[in-house]
Nucleic acid binder design. Structure first.
Lengths: 130, 130
DNA sequence: CCTTGCCTTGACGTCGGCGACAAGGTTTAG
DNA sequence: CTAAACCTTGTCGCCGACGTCAAGGCAAGG
């Protein structure tokens, strides 16, 4: 399988695949003419990468999952390093949820307050008049 | 008041103040030697900017609030344009909360599943043996 | 031979809110 | 005179996951 086919089957771009490779997440072989050749297993790897990136992981976070798949597991999640990352990410998400909740609360307060005090008590202030 | 003092009083940097100015949010006068001179009102403006940026607003989102303050209001929230932005931002935050909630759910599922299937049923697979 | 459609390796652009540095002017205190 | 501590404009760096040319090689059909 060449890069174009893999990209399409994995729902991504050739550029992304080369990017992953440059960062050591994918290692295709090369045919005589220099083309990248991927086997079927790489399709799963790339899909794992995509899935994790879509959830907000960075490439570094993804590495353990890829290694886990390469180790022969059917899921990239089951290895200890992956679990560690999952825990950390879950904690990060929780923290972010808290922050966002607080922000939401503040915006809500601000909005209701603003609507209550529409355009302030006095319509137009003479600001520089005398 | 010069830029350094304003920066300190507003809890930000001189770099940030010049940046806001470059984007039309603050307009200091200039003294004879070319120094930026701010009056007290600008302190409130800058604090409004900071507060909104800290909540996740972009500079463009902040503009209406600044204009509202400049129009003579004690709060930057009360003008219609500000209210519009507040509504939009609230909606954005809500949408993001939903997404993050879903992500959290998925991570949680993934994590519990991973812990349940620690290192897969079969300890070590002979992958190329044979 | 030519075109079409793959593939290759660079290398710069993106988005935002600044940080950091360069090279210089001003004012004040010693 | 000089150092210190302000100020000025200008420009590059950052972070991340790519998008988007650029310039060219290779395979295959008409």
């Amino acid at each position: 399988m060449l890069i174009g086919e893999l990209a399409e089957r994995a729902g991504t771009s050739t550029r992304a695949l080369r990017y992953y490779e440059a960062h050591g997440l994918v290692r295709p072989e090369r045919s005589a003419n220099g083309y990248r050749v991927y086997d079927e297993a790489e399709l799963r790897v790339v899909r794992e990468i995509r899935a994790l990136l879509d959830v907000g992981f960075g490439l570094d976070d993804v590495r353990p999952f890829v290694a886990c798949l390469r180790a022969g597991n059917t899921s990239g999640d089951v290895c200890p390093d992956s679990v560690t990352v999952l825990r950390r990410k879950l904690a990060e998400v929780d923290a972010y949820l808290d922050r966002l909740g607080a922000v939401r609360q503040q915006l809500h307060t601000q909005l209701t307050h603003a609507i209550a005090h529409r355009e302030e008590p006095c319509p137009r202030k003479r600001q520089s008049a005398h």
